[in-house]
Simulated assay, not measured.
Amino acid sequence: MNTRAVANEFAKMRHLRVGVIAVAMVVAVLGLSLFTIVSSPDFDPDSPAAWNGLLAGMSLAIPLVFPLLLAVLASRQTDIEHQGNGWLLQATSGLTPGGVCRAKLITLGIVVAAITAGTSLLVLVAGKLLAGILAPIPFAHWVGFTGCMLVINLVVLALHILLSAKIDNQLVALGIGVLGSVLAVFSQGLPAAAAHLTPWGYYALARAADYAASGYVAIPLSYPSIAALALVVAVFFLITTGRFDRQEA
């Protein structure tokens, strides 16, 4: 990867309010996660189910918040190329459109990874300090959930970068982001087979906990399905950006 291209993408972020979007994502997920346990009449800080309540809250909050804001991040980072004829400008310096897209995925991917991991850690700390949960933390399940959500976030980000690069009108990309949030949330009520049909449905497969008759319970994570999604989209992204390389800017 062209390190100069990656550095240029980071430089562009300073004018795109990426920090504001990142803070909005973290605050929204934290607030919704804490609201899940605060509003539950069965909340008991001494019970292991208390952590399941936070995981259930994040399992709903991340699909509700992230798909749209990932679309916003990808759109803002890509629209500047359409507005300023950046594709042609960078092509004259030897950087192909596909190379630009790959650089955008790396830079935004680093930001999204930091947001996802930071949000998960902040919810964990808030559970201890604000909610006063005393039960042992289910670290393995928590880390697994965070990893699965990170993979899905990066997949959705990659697809939105391709979409924003291909279509000049960014309202289309943002509209699909809204639709993605709706699909991500409603997929949690669908059978697992139906959740596999769209990238946003995989948020339901990464759900770590849910409410049952006995309270909040942990749910096994669908590691094989999420790994398969990552592989398929990675190949698709490389093939598509490779085709961009052979097109005129």
Rank of each mutant, 00 (worst) to 15 (best):
L32D: 05
A165L: 05
G127F: 02
V232L: 12
G53V: 01
T96M: 03
K104T: 12
S39W: 13
A208S: 00
L88S: 15
F244Q: 13
V156C: 09
V27R: 03
M149F: 07
V217C: 01
T116F: 10
K128Q: 10
V155F: 01
P67Q: 03
A71V: 05
P67R: 04
V26R: 01
G127D: 03
P97S: 08
T241D: 08
N85A: 12
Y202M: 02
L68C: 06
T96R: 13
V156M: 11
I137F: 14
D42E: 14
P136Q: 13
S120I: 04
S40V: 15
Q83N: 13
I110A: 06
P199W: 11
L159R: 07
L73P: 05
V65C: 09
P138M: 00
Y216N: 08
W142R: 05
V26E: 03
A212P: 05
R14H: 09
N8L: 15
L64D: 03
A228F: 05
L221C: 08
A192T: 04
A206E: 00
L70G: 05
T107E: 11
L221G: 08
I110W: 02
N85T: 14
R243D: 03
A126L: 00
V185W: 13
V155Q: 01
G144K: 08
D79A: 14
R102M: 10
L179A: 15
E81M: 08
N52V: 02
A28G: 02
F244V: 09
A184F: 10
G109A: 03
A192V: 02
L197I: 10
P63C: 05
